[in-house]
C-alpha cells in the first residue's frame, strides 16, 4: 500500500525505441519493452555489451531522444519535461567540453545553466575542483587536459547543480585503475549522501563493488535484474579462507570433507589477489616511496 506511493528516482515503463532508417523499410530496434526502477538513494548498474541499448535508454531518460513507446520519468516527472532535469547530473561517455574554457570557467558555465547564484557557483567550483583533484588545472584550458582529467571535469560538471540523481555512461571507460578507483569511491560517497546513481558499463567487475542493483541488458532487452549478491552467489558452494593455516588443520579439514557423503573439495591453495588490486597496491607503495625520498 505504502510502496505504491513512493516515487522512485527513475521509473522506466515498457520503453521501446525504434530508429527508422531513412529511405528504407527496415527499422532498427534499439530498446525493446524495457522496464526498470531505481529507488531513491540506490545505485543501479546497467551492464551489457556495446550496442545493447544502454546509452539509448539513458538518452531517453534524459530527454535527448524521445521514446517510440513506453514512458520514462525522473522523480515522477516525465523525461519530456525540462523540469525533470532540474536535479540530474549526467556524465556522457567520453565527454567533450568547450576546449577554450578553463576548468573553473567550465564549472561556472554549467552552474549558471543550473540556475545557481554567482556566490554559490564560486563555492561549488572550488569544492568540486578539489573533489576531482583538478585544483592545479583550475585555470588551464580544457584543450590541454588529458583524457582522465576530462573525465574528472565531466564528473564535476555533473555534480555542479547538487543533483539528486547522477547518470553516468561508462564512467570508467578509458580511465586508468587509479582513476577508476576514485570514481568508485565517489559513487560510494554519493550513496552515503542519499544520491541515486544510475551507471552503465560493459566491464562487469567495476560494477560489482558499488551497485545495489544490477540490470543486464542484451540486444535491447533487460534479460536479468536483481540485487548484486543474489545474482552472483553460487548457492551450492561455500568458501573458507584461512590465514596462517597449519598443515595439520588443513589435513583435518580434508579428512572431514572426505568423510562426508555429499561434500566435495573443489579447489584449495593460496587465494590470488586481482591484478587490479596488485596494480593499485604497487603504484601506491611506489608513490609513497617517492614522497619519502623527497
Amino acid at each position: 500500500m505504502m510502496a505504491e506511493e513512493i516515487i522512485p528516482a527513475v521509473q522506466i515503463n515498457n520503453l521501446t525505441k525504434i530508429f527508422p532508417v531513412p529511405f528504407r523499410k527496415e527499422k532498427v530496434i534499439a530498446v525493446e519493452d524495457l522496464s526498470l526502477r531505481v529507488e531513491a538513494g540506490e545505485v543501479y548498474g546497467l551492464i551489457g555489451p556495446n550496442g545493447s541499448g544502454k546509452s539509448t535508454t539513458m538518452k531517453v531518460l534524459l530527454g535527448l531522444i524521445s521514446a517510440t513507446s513506453g514512458s520514462s520519468a525522473i522523480f515522477g516527472l516525465s523525461s519530456s519535461e525540462t523540469a525533470s532535469r532540474g536535479s540530474v547530473g549526467f556524465l556522457p561517455e567520453n565527454p567533450y567540453f568547450y576546449k577554450y574554457l578553463t576548468g573553473a570557467e567550465t564549472l561556472s558555465f554549467y552552474g549558471k545553466l543550473c540556475g545557481l547564484s554567482r556566490r554559490k557557483i564560486k563555492e561549488r567550483t572550488s569544492e568540486l575542483l578539489s573533489l576531482v583533484d583538478l585544483e592545479n588545472a583550475r585555470d588551464r584550458r580544457l584543450g590541454g587536459y588529458s583524457k582522465g582529467m576530462l573525465q574528472r571535469i565531466g564528473l564535476a560538471q555533473a555534480l555542479v547543480g547538487d543533483p539528486r540523481l547522477v547518470v553516468l555512461d561508462e564512467p570508467t571507460a578509458g580511465v586508468d585503475p587509479a582513476g577508476s578507483r576514485k570514481i568508485r569511491d565517489l559513487i560510494i560517497e554519493f550513496k552515503q549522501r542519499g544520491i541515486s546513481v544510475i551507471l552503465s558499463s560493459h566491464l562487469l567487475e567495476q560494477v560489482q563493488e558499488v551497485c545495489d542493483k544490477v540490470g543486464i541488458i542484451f540486444q535491447g532487452k533487460l534479460v536479468k535484474e536483481g540485487k548484486l549478491e543474489e545474482l552472483i552467489e553460487i548457492e551450492s558452494q561455500t568458501e573458507i579462507i584461512l590465514e596462517h593455516a597449519d598443515p595439520k588443520i588443513l589435513d583435518q579439514i580434508n579428512k572431514l570433507v572426505q568423510a562426508s557423503e555429499e561434500t566435495r573439495l573443489l579447489r584449495s591453495g593460496k587465494p590470488k589477489t586481482t591484478l587490479e588490486r596488485l596494480f593499485l597496491k604497487e603504484t601506491r607503495a611506489e608513490s609513497e616511496d617517492v614522497r619519502k625520498d623527497a
Binding site: 530527454g63 525540462t82 532535469r85 540530474v88 549526467f90 567533450y96 545553466l113
Partner: peptide
Amino acid sequence: EDRTLYTILTKPVP
C-alpha cells in the same frame, strides 16, 4: 558532433 550538447541539454535548459 562533439556531444557537448548532451551536457547542456541534460541540465534544466529548454
